[in-house]
Computed example of a mutant assay.
Amino acid sequence: MEYIIYIIEDDISISRLLKEHIDKYGLSARIVENFDNIIEEFLLIKPHLVLLDVNLPKFDGFYWCRRIRENSKVPILFISARESGLDQVRALENGADDYITKPFSYEVVMAKINSHIRRAIGDYATTIGERIIEMDGLKFYAERLEVTFQGKTILLTKKEAILLESLIQTYPKVVNRDYLLEQMWDHSDFVEENTLNVNVTRLRKKLQDLGIANGIQTIRGLGYKLNKSW
Rank of each mutant, 00 (worst) to 15 (best):
I76Y: 00
L17S: 12
H21V: 14
V50K: 00
L44H: 15
S84T: 11
F62H: 13
K73E: 08
I22S: 05
V74L: 08
F104T: 02
L52C: 08
H48F: 11
I39D: 09
D60A: 10
G61Y: 01
Q88T: 03
D97V: 04
E33L: 13
S15P: 11
I31D: 08
L56E: 07
P57R: 05
A81R: 00
P75R: 00
A29K: 09
L17Y: 10
L77W: 02
I39C: 10
R67G: 00
S15I: 12
N34W: 13
E83N: 09
L27F: 15
S80G: 05
P47E: 10
D87F: 00
L27D: 14
G85V: 07
S13E: 15
E33V: 10
I22D: 09
K73H: 05
I31Q: 06
E33R: 10
R90M: 08
L56K: 01
P75S: 07
E93Q: 15
P47L: 12
I38L: 14
F62R: 03
I38H: 06
R67H: 02
A91I: 04
Y25V: 12
P57Q: 13
H21C: 13
P103H: 11
E20W: 13
S15Y: 13
V32P: 01
L77T: 01
C65P: 02
Y99E: 08
K102Y: 03
C65I: 08
A91Q: 02
